[in-house]
Design a protein around this nucleic acid. Structure first.
Lengths: 133, 133
DNA sequence: ATGGCACCTGGAGTGGGCTCCAGGTCAATG
DNA sequence: CATTGACCTGGAGCCCACTCCAGGTGCCAT
């Protein structure tokens, strides 16, 4: 059974040491195993769960919602349907997020084009008729 | 020249009255015109700028960056190239955001599929051999 | 044995972005 | 002429998600 030091986990998951401790404190992570000196040793399972947390966080799920999901995961197999429900609705939320992002992006791109046109006109003014320069 | 009351602007832009006042306070909005009673009357231009702010906010631009952009807009035509630069790099940031979101979304969808498989196996266990029920 | 390093704890502090509040002004409506 | 409702101000408060800190432990290499 492989175990990971806090430093390794931070490296792998991209969470800071402080964030890892914070997640454990608030119960997003179950109490992590310790070695004789009291230092954390993360299991494969911990690291896997942190991967899930990474996905959910990066897609905008608030910590409170992740805590509820964590509760489901800990409550055993009879919650599998509920977990699917949570993830499906989050999947839909991500889709909506992307749709909005694309919409706003198009508006910004139109603005860029507008500024380019403004520039082009300005240049025309500088050299109104190339043939006559 | 049409003007808009705070309520109308809130309605149209989706920003709350408090947020509109906050944006003016921090200088994201230039001092808004007032009527005789000291109440705000937003111009078309204000509303247009708020549309831009909406786009930038919704796509994750921090307020500090929007303030810098606002400065460029106010500094006159010679900043058009800079504005294009800001918007282009923000456009790229949005693209990156969407790419990450899609990546995470795929991982979540794989997880959903995994849970569905777990469920299927569980059902098999309940009725191991349909022919023999 | 001495330094350096990775880690530990509880608790306080930070930053971003609003959001709320008390107490007040004005204009229109019943 | 009293009430209602939309608005005003300055300032405090809030929520989220970390992040930092002081003071301490244990282990390893020089």
């Amino acid at each position: 059974m492989t175990v990971y030091t806090p430093g390794q986990v931070a490296e792998e998951t991209g969470f800071s040491l402080d964030t890892l401790r914070y997640y454990e404190r608030i119960g997003l992570l179950e109490p992590v195993e310790r070695n004789a000196a009291g230092q954390r040793r993360f299991s494969e399972e911990d690291v896997g769960w942190l991967g899930m947390v990474r996905c959910l966080r990066d897609t905008g799920m608030p910590i409170a919602a992740m805590l509820r999901f964590a509760q489901l995961v800990r409550s055993g197999d009879h919650t599998v349907a509920d977990r699917i429900g949570v993830l499906e609705s989050h999947d839909a939320a991500i889709e909506a997020q992307i749709t909005l992002l694309r919409e706003r992006q198009r508006a910004i791109q139109r603005k860029i084009q507008y500024y380019r046109d403004v520039q082009a006109v300005a240049e025309l003014r500088e050299t109104p008729d190339p043939a006559r320069r």
